[in-house]
Computed example of a mutant assay.
Amino acid sequence: MSENKSCCCSAAPKLVFACSGGADVGALADRAARKLTADGAAKMFCLAGIGGRVSGIMKTTEAAAKVVAIDGCSLNCARNTLEQAGFTDFMHVQLADLGFAKGESPVTEDRVLSVAMAVAPHFANPCE
């Protein structure tokens, strides 16, 4: 994966991996990734497949134009899963940096939109 202009002008996928943990912020990260997918900004991909080293998921991720990990809490499970699988060239968004606190951030449509809007610029296409 490369951060140069040609990478983002290709047909290579833009992938988002989200924490989908049991806490409210995990659910918020998950819903924001699903919104980004529904909006066409990126494609939500399977973080468990990375952890399980599923060959097809690993190959697709290796070929991605951009990868963003969204973590709900400071445990950073999405980031750590990608790193332990050997991925280093990705953006990381931590919901605490956006003002969300574990146990204090019930999922609402406004919060999902807020997170999705904060993450979407990471997928901006310089060719447009």
Rank of each mutant, 00 (worst) to 15 (best):
G26K: 10
S20L: 03
D24A: 14
G22A: 15
A23V: 13
C7L: 04
G22K: 09
R31H: 06
S20P: 04
C19Y: 06
V25S: 05
T37R: 09
S10V: 04
K35I: 02
G26E: 04
K14E: 03
C7W: 08
V25K: 11
R31V: 01
A33C: 11
S6N: 14
R34M: 14
G21Y: 07
L36T: 07
S6L: 13
A29C: 01
A18V: 04
A33M: 08
C19F: 03
A27Y: 10
A27T: 12
S6A: 13
G21F: 07
A27N: 15
C7V: 01
L15Q: 02
C7A: 11
D30W: 07
R31T: 03
A23D: 15
V25H: 09
G22I: 12
A23T: 13
A38I: 12
K14R: 14
A32V: 01
K14T: 00
R31P: 00
V25M: 07
T37A: 13
A12V: 00
D24V: 11
L15V: 01
R34N: 13
A12L: 06
A32R: 04
G22W: 14
S10D: 06
D30V: 03
V25Y: 09
F17N: 00
C9N: 13
L15M: 07
C9T: 10
A12F: 05
C8K: 10
A12P: 00
A11I: 09
L28D: 05
V16S: 02
K14Y: 08
V16A: 01
K35S: 11
V16E: 01
L28M: 08
S20T: 12
C19K: 03
F17T: 00
V25I: 12
A18E: 03
A18P: 04
A18Q: 00
D30G: 11
L15W: 02
G26L: 08
A33Q: 10
A38T: 13
R34H: 06
A29F: 08
A11P: 00
A11V: 08
R34I: 02
A23E: 15
T37P: 06
A18C: 14
K14H: 09
C8P: 00
A18G: 08
F17W: 03
A29G: 02
C19H: 06
P13Y: 00
